[in-house]
Amino acid sequence: MRLLMWDVDLTLLHAGGVARESWAEAFGAMTGLAPRVLPTFAGRTDLDTAAEIFRVHGLPEPDFEEFFDRYAAAFAARRDLVARHGRVLPGAAEVLAALAERPDITQTVVTGNIRPVAEVKLDALGLSGTLDLDVGGYGTDDGDRATLVRRGRQRAEAKYGTFADLWVIGDTRHDVAAALACGARAVGVASGSAGADELASAGADLVLESLADVGAVVRALTGSRCVNESSSPG
């Protein structure tokens, strides 16, 4: 059995900027302030970025549970905007569907998003049915992304039993580093701001230019380990 843990944003989908609006609304509701600046979210966890935004505004650390409840509610209220302005990245839906048919593969997520937000994004764009979201790693697990990978694996093995190996698929150096820190196989997808060379230099076992060539991606993710191999499906 192989466990595949997918990053969400810019690996599988683009949510159309809705998260930033929802984040600002939650911050304003908690503080009465409009945020002067929002943090960089790519590859980071919501717990980490929430701590940063309060810190840079000179505010004490908040009740994170309250903050994330407000954020989740603000995001859920914008679900139609995600469906309207968001998009699934080329090949993502087809790759997930093809892998879901394999009995030796379990798919979940490892994402810096809090779980309710990840669920809305994936559901609004039609991707949730191929992923077991109960066993994922989420942005409230820890500020360190590697801990998200470990927690996700623990949840998956509690449900399914031991996996022969774990692969983490993401679009940033943070995804690669988290995978390697946990002894997982790191697959970099150059669909975000990091190019193929950057992901390879970060130590990714396999680098894909995109998920667009569905057959090539499925073969790559169901094959044996390929160290620092670059592929260009699509």
Rank of each mutant, 00 (worst) to 15 (best):
A26W: 08
R20F: 11
L131D: 10
P103L: 07
L166D: 02
G161C: 09
A15G: 13
D132P: 12
D197A: 15
M5P: 08
R78N: 05
F27W: 05
A220F: 00
Y138W: 15
A50E: 07
C226F: 04
L208M: 01
I53G: 06
G161Y: 01
S230P: 08
L208F: 11
W167G: 04
Y71K: 07
G129R: 15
G139R: 04
H57Y: 13
V56R: 14
T147F: 10
G112S: 08
H174G: 01
A77Q: 11
R150D: 10
R79K: 15
F75I: 05
E101Q: 14
A100L: 09
V176Q: 00
A124C: 12
R79W: 10
A184E: 01
V109C: 15
G143C: 12
A76K: 07
P60G: 05
A73F: 01
V8Q: 10
L180S: 04
G161I: 08
R44S: 11
D80A: 15
F68R: 00
S230R: 15
G136Q: 10
R225S: 09
Y160N: 06
T49D: 05
G234L: 05
H57G: 12
S128V: 14
E94G: 09
L125K: 12
A194V: 10
V207T: 00
A212I: 01
V18M: 09
T111A: 13
D141L: 13
A34Q: 15
C226E: 15
P35T: 05
V207K: 02
R145W: 04
G112H: 03
L38M: 14
Y71V: 08
G17I: 10
S22Q: 07
E101N: 08
P90V: 02
D213S: 03
E61N: 02
D205W: 03
V56C: 11
E157K: 03
A194K: 09
S231R: 14
G17H: 10
H57M: 13
G136W: 05
V135N: 12
F54R: 05
D132E: 13
V95C: 12
V207W: 02
E94W: 01
S191M: 01
A42C: 07
Y71F: 15
A93F: 00
L125P: 13
A124P: 13
R145V: 11
V120L: 12
R87G: 06
R79N: 04
E229W: 02
E25K: 08
G43W: 06
D80W: 07
M5Y: 10
A177C: 02
G195Y: 02
A177I: 01
R225M: 11
T162P: 08
